[in-house]
Computed example of a mutant assay.
Amino acid sequence: MLAGFTSVMTCTPAHAQICAADRNGNGDASDAGETAMCEAMAGGGVQCPIERTACVADAAGAWACPLGLQFACAAPAPGATPTCSPHICTAADAPGGGIEHEPIVDDPGTPADGPVDAAGNCTGTIEIFSGRAVRCRTAGLSTTFSNCCKDKGKIIRDGNGSALASAGATVAVARGVFTGMKAAYTAFQAGATATQAASTGARALVIGIDPTSLAISVAINLMVEVLLQGCDQQDMEVGMLKGSGMCHEVGEYCTSKILGLCVQKARGQCCFNTKLGRIIQEQGRPQLKSFAGLGWGTPKQPFCRGFTAEEFQALDFSRMDLSDYYTEIQARAQGQIQLDMKDRIDAYTRTMGR
């Protein structure tokens, strides 16, 4: 299952030359085939392989680029026919000219324990159904053209106020999966077999996590998939929360550019600790003047604060459609009943010695 780990977690070498081109005319260079490592040429220098063209000899025997005289001809190897490219190479780490990265959107959310007075009364602002501003990256240069925003399926079960009582607990579960993923990768690199590495990752994954809050088998499949792609920890966390119905997508923005061309995009999200929280936020905000004009913020800076006590009291729940959540509760309750029945039958069988 873990075969191929040796090919992951690669990065652009320091001082490497790269190039980018908007080949399909959509205004960015974030699609496969639109970025490349520049290649060394005979006699020194580098050339972009994107849309590279063979040079032609003029009447005097001099080589000229058919794309334009402004593009230099260079031979890829001694004695080879010179080629030219219309695209510029730049050092990946060149100040002001290499890859420009936007800071990662990573909002810790409202602290669960705010300031209190001597009597134990909360002196801070209480927020109900607050969320976190995060992002996941779509297919692009930094993700080895893998879509890290892809719906991973339902992994984290909605706590309904018990298994996952706070956003902090939800984040702990998501980060627990990442811990398991790293443990599996480390074991594999140390010489463990695929089965041994998977077992190591699974043990690390469940430590400190309520197993009823997590679809462990799906989570293990996710952590293997993430390792084989260029997704980072926040991509994985958002993939889990988004697939579990706990995120509201705000929009897409550019996170990395080369020479002004976007080579990596991301989708800003507001993620909540429960699916119910996300539904009430989506249907409650339009009812309140305090959110008018603010909406969900911008993709780069999602606005994910919770409701104040006064705002929450002003919500008209009769105008909200919670059927999506009711269906999930009903399905979970039916499954739980079957599980309880099996546990009781098993216990009875053990007691009777059968």
Rank of each mutant, 00 (worst) to 15 (best):
P78G: 03
L69K: 13
D93K: 07
P49S: 01
P66W: 03
P76S: 07
T81G: 08
E100H: 15
L67N: 01
F71N: 01
C73Y: 10
C84K: 01
V56H: 11
A59H: 08
A62N: 14
S85W: 07
E51P: 02
G97H: 15
P49K: 02
A62W: 08
C65L: 06
P115D: 05
C55W: 03
T81N: 04
L69Y: 05
D58V: 00
P76C: 10
E100Q: 14
H101Y: 15
E100L: 15
D113C: 11
C55N: 05
A72P: 07
D107N: 13
P111E: 09
D93P: 10
Q47T: 05
G68W: 03
T83R: 11
Q70Y: 05
P76F: 13
S85G: 05
A72F: 02
A72I: 13
D106W: 14
G44K: 07
A59W: 02
A91Q: 14
A54Y: 13
H101C: 10
G44Q: 00
C89I: 11
G98T: 10
H101V: 14
G45Q: 02
C55R: 00
P82R: 07
G114D: 04
T90E: 12
W63H: 05
G68P: 01
E100C: 11
T81W: 01
M41W: 00
C89W: 09
E51L: 06
A80Y: 04
G109V: 10
T53N: 02
A62Q: 14
A75Q: 12
T110L: 10
H101M: 15
A59N: 10
M41H: 01
P82W: 06
G97A: 15
I88N: 11
A64K: 07
P66V: 11
L67C: 00
F71W: 12
P76D: 03
T90V: 14
A112S: 07
A75V: 15
D113M: 11
A75N: 10
G45S: 03
A94N: 06
P49H: 03
E102Q: 15
G68E: 00
G79C: 02
L67I: 00
G68L: 04
A77L: 14
Q70P: 05
I50R: 00
E102L: 15
G98D: 08
A80S: 12
V56K: 06
A91D: 12
C84G: 00
S85C: 01
P103G: 04
A72L: 11
P49L: 02
P115G: 01
I99Q: 07
G97S: 14
A62R: 15
I50S: 00
A54Q: 13
G45W: 03
A57H: 04
D106E: 12
E102I: 10
D58F: 02
A57T: 15
D93F: 13
D107I: 12
I104W: 11
